[in-house]
């Protein structure tokens, strides 16, 4: 080995000057501006300067945003969670069945009506925790790929939701329970959840371990991290957040149906990926996902605003997710080449 190539390799390199989230924020601003311009051209009005539109937009995505906060942690740990949409449906059903008013004659549990709001809330979170435990245990200890494990729970939990009342919807929640889905509550809950887990991922051991495992599970193990136990925690948290989202959905609609939350997991994954969370693990942040969520919302409400047919919207949504993943893979490959 000659001494020239040594000095070349240790020479300081220029580094990224701002956090990765800034890039995503720029993308958001760019997309919003495009819709603003298109708005003036095709609709003769502003897209952004409508308080009502922005409110609806953020309300639309907040529920899935709550799920995305959990999914972000799972993806950073190097995994994936496909079961969150089904957890939304199942928890909507289960929690709602403990949140009904006594004045309704055909309650699921006639003896258990008019319960304080905390009861269905805890039951719902508990249900989520159980699904998360199953996911985490399957992935960490039986070593099946997360994709397969959570695909299994996705189908099973959806089946449970349908079986729970043999397909009947559950309605008439107490005022207390309905409150968690009322007004801007979904947005408030999302902001709380996002803030808590942003801090957790950045400043606590839980977060550091999650990143470490996603970056290199073997190295994490050698560093003394109990990788298996930690992964269980990550999947439990993700499923509990999906459960919370399920209760917000049910409370907002004041009714629960087994089909609720269908394909939410994909939208949540999309938000994370658009927000810069790498599907290869070890990279991304809750803040990025939050921005990704807003991008997602802007695109959907932008298309609606431009009166684009809903069918086109779905097709374009799919293409955007694929594009975000391609961009991520491309970035990784470029990094690998330069390093």
């Amino acid at each position: 080995m000659s001494s020239q190539d040594i000095t070349a390799r240790t020479a300081p390199r220029t580094q990224r000057k701002w956090p990765a989230e800034v890039n995503i924020l720029l993308v958001l601003i760019g997309i919003a501006l495009v819709f603003e311009i298109l708005g003036w051209i095709f609709q003769g009005q502003s897209f952004l300067f409508s308080w009502n539109r922005l409110k609806i937009m953020i309300l639309q995505v907040s529920v899935i945003g709550i799920i995305a906060v959990g999914v972000t942690q799972v993806i950073i740990s190097g995994g994936i969670d496909l079961s969150s949409g089904s957890v939304v449906g199942a928890v909507a059903m289960v929690a709602m069945s403990f949140a009904q008013v006594s004045t309704y004659a055909r309650a699921v549990y006639p003896a258990l009506t008019d319960l304080p709001m905390i009861v269905p809330l805890l039951i719902g979170l508990g249900f989520g925790a159980i699904v998360g435990l199953i996911n985490g245990w399957l992935i960490a200890y039986t070593k099946i790929p997360p994709f397969i494990a959570t695909l299994g729970t996705m189908v099973t939990v959806r089946g449970f939701a349908k079986w729970y009342t043999k397909g009947q919807p559950i309605s008439f929640p107490t005022e207390g329970f309905a409150w968690i889905g009322s007004g801007m509550m979904p947005v408030v809950i999302f902001i709380l959840v996002a803030a808590i887990f942003h801090v957790a991922m950045k400043y606590t051991r839980y977060g550091k371990f999650t990143y470490a495992i996603g970056a290199n599970a073997q190295a994490a193990r050698v560093s003394g991290i109990d990788v298996e136990r930690h992964l269980v925690k990550v999947y439990v948290i993700a499923a509990m957040l999906a459960a919370l989202a399920g209760m917000v959905v049910a409370a907002r609609g004041q009714t629960a149906q087994a089909g609720m939350g269908l394909a939410y997991e994909l939208d949540a994954i999309a938000m994370a990926v658009i927000g810069g969370v790498s599907l290869q693990g070890g990279r991304g942040s809750v803040l990025g996902t939050a921005i990704g969520m807003v991008i997602f919302g802007v695109i959907i409400s932008g298309f609606t605003f431009l009166r684009l047919d809903a069918y086109y919207q779905e097709m374009i949504k799919g293409a955007i997710v694929v594009a975000a993943v391609v961009a991520d893979v491309h970035r990784q490959r470029k990094r690998r080449k330069t390093s």
Partner: peptide, 26 residues
Amino acid sequence: TEDRKETGCFLTLDCLENIQSALITR
């Protein structure tokens, strides 16, 4: 460990996090 890339480094994380990973487990 023998293999820096396989069982050593957290390539996507920064230098500080790489140095601290074992310390903060204890």
